[in-house]
Design a protein around this nucleic acid. Structure first.
Lengths: 217, 217
DNA sequence: CATTGTGAACGGATTCACAGCC
DNA sequence: GGCTGTGAATCCGTTCACAATG
């Protein structure tokens, strides 16, 4: 019995859930209230089988012969991701990127709340975003432990990143969206997703030069 | 013979090349001029075998019994990625995110040059970045075709993204780093990498709630 | 009879294991 | 002896094919 219960959901599946959620939101806005895996496939570009398999990781949400109830499926996915309850996040590093990301998130999603931003540079301690305070790093433990924040977005320079991460982990952060171009060392229970813009851009450049020596050949 | 020459490099490999490059740069700065796959493994977190396999896609760059010459390997990877020659890129959508990304890139890399930014909103047509002009979208064809730009960073709102992409492709763009939260339709010769911050954040939230109903079980 | 849910087959990437070479 | 380069074995996610079912 333990064998079965140890099934871990692949990361690839978790990455697709938010896509489904977005499509379902769009469909609901258009009053589409039954949806087949085939239509979801058209909207997302994933295969219908893959979508059904993805959903099957979490339960049987559909009706054979009919499809999925849009609203019901949406509720289920919200719940699976954890968006059925408010999530507090912090932004560490309030330079241009941190600033842009804060705005981006604030505006996107009612379930997600940026509760504070942090920066070491006194020049950056001012926020032009309504309801957002920017604090020096010393205040981080108080805010994170006090409000039980679990999620952090990290946009500090590479050479400060590890020190900041240690501080985050110490204070109970369990998931980090890392924009600093460096490998972070964390305990295995902490989840780190790296979004490295330099890497993305450089792989893009690789692909931009089609039919060059290495590519086709 | 055709069978052999059709070998395509896996995307996963291409994504790791810039990581190697960064490590090699760091090592060179510390005057380390011979490097083994084992040490590269320690620095990157990838296995030594994987690193050797990755490099082997492009040739045999090492010396058995010794390792790789740091500077030589760096040159090779630069060349493979296409960073041995100047690359021109444009940023389309000059809101907070576009702005931050432009700064980010300008500052990172001598081989990569943001030649212009574009936005539809007259309010955003001013740049505070040295040497960078922000133009209305009508000017895009002239700049892109004229300067033979192949790479674009896209940070426009989701509902404008497809129209802008069509314009980009029409004018010769072959690689797009897309931050708009929507599926883009492009001819198969165009490479699109999606960086969807909402998706990243939502998967992060999934992982932040460890030992919840769906996760371990 | 359309569509879900799922075991089985497949394929691509990683890891293993070792032969080749300095 | 140490480290690269690589075929073989393995792992894991995707696709296939179909049984189950409203």
């Amino acid at each position: 019995m333990k064998e079965l219960s140890r099934r871990k959901t692949p990361k690839t599946v978790v990455k697709r859930l938010p896509v489904y959620l977005r499509i379902l939101d769009n469909l609901l806005r258009r009053d589409v209230d039954i949806i087949s895996s085939r239509v979801l496939s058209d909207e997302t570009g994933f295969t219908a089988e893959q979508i059904r398999k993805d959903l099957a990781y979490f339960g049987a949400f559909g009706t054979r012969g009919t499809g999925y109830n849009t609203g019901y499926l949406r509720e289920k996915i919200l719940r699976i991701i954890g968006l059925d309850k408010q999530t507090k996040i912090i932004v560490v590093g309030f330079g241009h990127l941190g600033h842009a990301l804060t705005r981006y998130n604030v505006y996107q999603n009612p379930y997600v709340e940026v509760v504070a931003a942090f920066d070491n540079d006194p020049a950056k301690l001012h926020s032009d975003i309504e309801g957002l305070e920017v604090y020096p790093l010393e205040k981080l433990p108080e805010v994170v432990s006090g409000q039980k924040v679990k999620v952090a977005i990290l946009t500090v320079p590479a050479d400060e990143a590890q020190k900041v991460v240690d501080l985050l982990v110490e204070n109970g952060i369990t998931a980090i969206l890392n924009f600093a171009p460096t490998k972070l060392h964390v305990p295995e229970y902490v989840y780190v997703h790296n979004t490295d813009l330099t890497i993305e851009l450089q792989s893009l450049i690789y692909y931009s030069q089609e039919d060059e020596k290495y590519h086709q050949q």
